[in-house]
Design a protein around this nucleic acid. Structure first.
Lengths: 369, 369
DNA sequence: CACATCGATTAATGCGTATTAGTAATGCGC
DNA sequence: GCGCATTACTAATACGCATTAATCGATGTG
């Protein structure tokens, strides 16, 4: 039996040996007179695992310091089978030229929470117009380089998402979303927030109110309606049906001053608008109130289930709530971190912040008394 | 001679095997019926090196696609190749709560240019308040995971930067910086921009002007002064020294209305203020002009070498220039990409955008003529 | 027909670190 | 003085990918 001849070694070409390379654990080990494994153990500083004598520890630390050793993050992550990277994917540019439309408030929370947990962030842009990282159907696959990925915006294609989820890749969608079965998400608790607003109005004395909403089946809409109705019910009956929901595909056309007056005549004292992308409901409500010549906090109270659109931001601060975008970002990272760690998903709902505002007050019947 | 008994294998503990792990090249190889090496070759898609038959290539690509294979960045990097990842490091939060102080305008350009070139972005946050990714002296070192890294803000510690640069790691600093020898940077061309402003004033007929600046040795300040002086010289002599530089550690205190009047009496017709973090020079100038009762475009022209501070943004638009932050971000990525590719650094200076504004006009001597 | 050529593919590395089985040395109890 | 536990380390992996020498076939060549 012949010993197989030692083959020439393939593999890496020798390093150009030009610069002084960074020291490796092996060099630290040589200097300290121990093995590379020992160096690794000392520098890892774990509680568990083999014990290390104080003397050896000091020798190693001293050697590492004198050589200026710094661990190679790539090797470290390779060996640990983790990247400590969380992906952030937005189908549109993460940084659009127009700051208004950006995910900025979310990113504030995302960054903070990720840093807190020792994760770095990889930004993926689905909209990359071309370039090497082409936006083919496997664009979403690139995110697998992270340990898990956060999705912003409604535009992530369900098909690709489904695949990621099916493969057990940790995915969290920022914003409630039921589309791909089993997709994890975090979102604002619109039910509670809407209800809180109604509670506030009820506490002021309002008993009959109308919700103005667009014709939309998005959870963000139906949740608000549910909270509205719950709040009304809790306020208790006070002469007939407490409230109504006015639903229109085009509130700016359908919500006329006449209709408002008719509601007032029916004993309605407060109007609540949902917030949408366009802000149509609130804008329609404001305009109708103005055209009908209704004095806002005095003759009728108004509330907005969300924040006013940019063009109405300068007006009187509406009673309502703010969406806690920064906290949502943080919550999404928390959940994602949990999934990456193989734990259960954390609480998906984040509470909104109630905003008293100046568009609500006691109903006229009480105020005039 | 006894064959040494085969030892049990140490090394890694078996994976928890719960989720479907990310596919490796080995799995792609198995599915395609080839070796891992072949997969690597196909996916590398190099011109040189062993040839691969078209048939095999297709098999491999198909297998890779169907498994959703994505290379592990850490492994890639460790094997001395590249990642297609560019790092972005900011010592303070990249997304501060206060949008005003954010790097947003830069990031717009960074993201766009990176996407264009097929790079993804990794955000390294140096400011982790003390989480797992603690901000030890090696916090900066994490960036080595990427192929190169962009640094934002003046706070990156020179010591650590020096190390990266010395090790030949591609680094680009956004904003001119000479501190660690050999550091690459991109910055706005303040010399040309300042000169352009002076040229504009000179073209209107101004011959004597004063530059108001703070007592600062930063390149951003001295460059502006240089451009100012160059512009004056080019405008040619027109009765004695064309201009002066007024330098003060506290312009708001030292720039009095009396001094302004004295300059006017000396034939000075235009005042130029540098832009700084605080905006002190411009603010002082505006106030002194107002207090002296000088009619701005008529009796004296004003110019600002930069953009007005936020609190003066609503005032009349000053003649001057804008710092092209978005283009700076893009230029930084271009340079970084060049360095990563082993090429020479690209042009570090980016031209500013001249802003005509409404605070300058012909000098009174001409206007009254 | 033996042999050099060329093309396609694979085996066998290396990168730098983390992990763990194994080993040598020492202490302890009876 | 022998077994056994403990302590302090080290040897030998594995991680996933890129690289390159070697190999195996299929063609030409002399």
């Amino acid at each position: 039996m012949e010993e197989p001849r030692k083959r020439a070694r393939p593999g890496r070409a020798p390093a150009p040996a030009g610069r002084t390379a960074r020291p490796r654990q092996a060099e630290v080990a040589r200097l300290a007179g121990v093995s590379q494994a020992t160096v690794s153990l000392v520098l890892a500083d774990k509680r568990q695992g083999p014990a290390i004598s104080e003397e050896t520890r000091q020798k190693v630390l001293e050697a590492a310091r004198s050589l200026g050793y710094v661990p190679d993050p790539a090797a470290r992550r390779l060996a640990a089978a983790r990247n400590n990277l969380l992906g952030v994917f937005s189908f549109t540019a993460t940084f659009p030229t127009d700051v208004q439309h950006s995910y900025y408030p979310f990113l504030v929370g995302v960054e903070r929470e990720a840093a807190e947990r020792g994760y770095d962030l990889v930004l993926f842009t689905g909209s990359s117009t071309g370039g090497a990282g082409a936006a083919g159907p496997d664009a979403l696959n690139r995110v697998r380089l992270a340990d898990g990925c956060l999705f912003l915006g409604r535009h992530a294609p369900a098909q690709e998402l489904r695949r990621l989820v099916a493969d057990g890749f940790p995915v969290v969608h920022l914003g409630r979303r039921d589309e791909p079965e089993g997709l994890h998400w975090v979102g604002a608790d619109y039910v509670s927030a809407a209800r809180e607003v109604v509670d506030h109005l009820a506490a002021l004395g309002h008993r009959r109110m109308v919700l103005i909403r667009e014709d939309d089946e998005a959870p963000a809409s139906t949740d608000r309606e549910q909270g509205f109705l719950e709040g009304l019910e809790a306020a208790g009956p006070a002469g007939g049906p407490g409230g109504a929901v006015f639903r229109s595909a085009d509130p700016e056309r359908d919500l006329t001053p006449e209709r408002l007056r008719s509601w007032l005549a029916d004993g309605v004292t407060a109007f609540v608008a949902e917030e949408t992308d366009t802000g149509a409901a609130w804008r329609a409500l404001r305009r109708a109130v103005a055209e009908a010549g209704i004095d806002c906090p005095r003759e009728a109270s108004l509330a907005l289930l969300g924040s006013p659109p940019a063009d109405l931001a300068d007006g009187p601060e509406p009673t309502g709530f703010d969406i806690p975008r920064t906290r949502l970002g943080a919550a999404a990272v928390r959940m994602l971190a949990a999934l990456v760690a193989g734990e259960e998903a954390t609480e998906p709902l984040v509470a909104c912040t109630f905003r008293p505002g100046v568009t609500s007050g006691p109903p006229p019947a009480i105020a005039d008394r």
